[in-house]
Amino acid sequence: MTTLAPPSTTAGLNHLDALESHALFILREVVAECERPVLLFSGGKDSAVLLHLAAKAFAPLGLPFPVLHVDTGHNFSEVLAFRDRAAVRAGARLIVARVQDSIDRGRVADPGDLASRNRLQSVTLLDAISEHGFDAAFGGARRDEDKARAKERVLSFRDEFGQWDPRRQRPELWRLYQGRVNPGEHVRAFPLSDWTELDVWQYVAREGVDLPSIYFAHERPVVARDGMWLAVGEFVRPRDDERVESRTVRFRTVGDATGTGAVLSNARTIDEVVAEVAAATVSERGATRGDDRFSETSMEDRKREGYF
């Protein structure tokens, strides 16, 4: 019998099924190859999708690994509430590693109450990985987010200092993911590598994935700063020259509350968000992340230090 079949391993599936199956495959492969995996969970949409996929990969059994939240202490309350309910729903053991503890122990300097703790998270994350002896950490990072992430392997090797060396990445042929490391080293595994922001939202819509409410349009007091709309609250106070306005906004990403901007939006439902994302002309990090704007290689620099 001779048949003609395309060489692609995803032939015959629509793109969301192909992305989903690839992600399930990566999740299972890392769990099979590594001793102590952990799933990094920020409470954002990408990690919510990742947790949903993990539940599917091991259904009807529970998750074979814990979930780790690196907590900057600068949170949106809606996101913390979501984190807790999502972990309970997934039946996952939730570990919280606090940047504040790293500051209190003198591992990192305190940048002050209203300054971003985004970069400090790397130290807290690496300390937690080392303390628990994790040899693999799943993350929700996507290659379409940033030009440094666009370069990263699905399984990305980290040396004993937690560093990423973009010039010496392991070859990654076919789907033969190879996660073995020596003690003290680990891999980061990115099941959403090939997903775009639009894919994530289409998938959220199809699967009915629960998300924090701040991803949908709502009224809130904001100030315009650095070309972004920042939510006024505990972590962002208006400066003397800034005027607080009430605007209808939503968040495209969720990060440290001092540096994560909202976008003006009337998208109150998932379908409206999908339509908005499909028409967007500015990238999600460009629209919402203050710390990615200051230097040409800020993400590359943070990743080299061990960032997500």
């Binding site: 015959g12 599936l13 099924d17 192909a18 990969a57």
Partner: peptide
């Protein structure tokens, strides 16, 4: 597949 039951598994399906 992901907790559902199917009659057929297409190429590329986990």
């Amino acid at each position: 597949y992901g907790g559902r039951t199917l009659e057929e598994a297409a190429v590329g399906l986990a």
